[in-house]
Simulated assay, not measured.
Amino acid sequence: MKTQRKNKSKTVLLYLEEHTSCQHYISDFTSGFSLKKYESGKELSISLKKQFLVIFMQIGELEIVSELGEIKKICADEVCLLDYEKEYSCKVIKNAVFTLLYFEYPKIKCDKYSLLSLAKDKKELEDDIRILPILEPLKIFIENLNLYLKNKLMCRHLHDLKESEWLFIMRGFYTKQESVYFLEPVIDSLNDFVTIVKENYLQCNSVSELAEKCNMSEKTFTRRFKDYFKDTPKQWMLNEKAKYIKSELENSNLNVKEIANKFGFSSPAHLNNYYKKHFNTTPRKKEK
């Protein structure tokens, strides 16, 4: 005999306790997907370590500021990627509903290899906040995903599969140029060479020192560096260090003298001259 359910229009997860008691149930909300709702005026701080954060915006508007001062607004029907090992501050401009995805790297090898195949098309852009429109296939994906989230279906295996499905949608329904632009930080993280460079350049005072960190001769290192970063190691290191020092001067609690010592300048005046040369102005920081 067939049994009929009441309230056919309402979909509710059955046996919730079995799901929540599973060892693979996600409870910390710093991995996998989660659904968020905030009212206008809410301020959020985001500190990413070894994780990327994707924001699927469905309703409202957020203003996002990176640690280097980049400011962008993400609106309804847009998707945003925030880079790992970065800090961001967010403010809800209009009442917002959005889905978050925290992830470290693609869990499925096919996804990893597919992303690495896009490396040849990278442009080495410097955006800490990357935004694309949500196309119809991605919109359908989010609607289905939210059904799981609203019913507390937080199985880690399911979330890994949904992460893979999202990456498939990015590669299948967005152009290569769009996919590369959006996923470039993820692509870089899959490359050990790029990761070693980005984790060590601030502690190195020369190209040869950074090449040694990568266990390469300076000649081999320079050739490979140009392939990935589209610039010479020396010029890239100068530019990146300048941006980092600028961020420290503008955002840290250290004064000019302390920052000069931290980065090996002989005096605050030396740091001021360096800053003026790169940014055509002097740093606005207390001298004492």
Score class of each variant (00 low, 15 high):
102 Y>V: 10
157 H>F: 15
185 P>N: 07
207 V>L: 03
122 K>Y: 03
214 C>F: 00
211 A>K: 00
123 K>H: 12
189 S>P: 09
176 K>H: 09
193 F>W: 05
123 K>D: 13
112 K>W: 04
164 S>D: 02
195 T>N: 04
154 M>V: 03
155 C>T: 07
157 H>L: 13
173 F>W: 09
192 D>A: 12
148 Y>C: 14
170 M>W: 01
197 V>W: 10
127 D>A: 13
194 V>H: 09
158 L>V: 01
190 L>G: 02
122 K>C: 14
112 K>S: 14
182 F>V: 08
105 Y>C: 09
214 C>K: 00
146 N>C: 09
98 F>N: 12
177 Q>I: 14
157 H>K: 11
200 N>I: 10
178 E>P: 10
103 F>I: 11
204 C>P: 02
203 Q>G: 05
179 S>T: 15
156 R>N: 11
179 S>D: 04
147 L>Y: 02
109 K>T: 15
142 I>G: 04
174 Y>N: 05
173 F>Q: 02
157 H>V: 13
146 N>V: 04
158 L>I: 05
128 D>H: 15
205 N>R: 08
175 T>Y: 02
132 L>N: 10
172 G>S: 15
196 I>G: 06
194 V>L: 10
154 M>T: 07
160 D>L: 12
215 N>W: 00
99 T>A: 01
188 D>W: 10
216 M>L: 15
186 V>H: 06
134 I>H: 00
148 Y>F: 14
203 Q>R: 12
147 L>N: 13
151 N>I: 06
128 D>N: 15
122 K>S: 14
210 L>S: 08
117 S>V: 07
201 Y>W: 01
216 M>Y: 09
103 F>E: 09
216 M>F: 08
193 F>A: 06
154 M>Y: 15
100 L>V: 09
101 L>C: 07
187 I>N: 01
184 E>I: 03
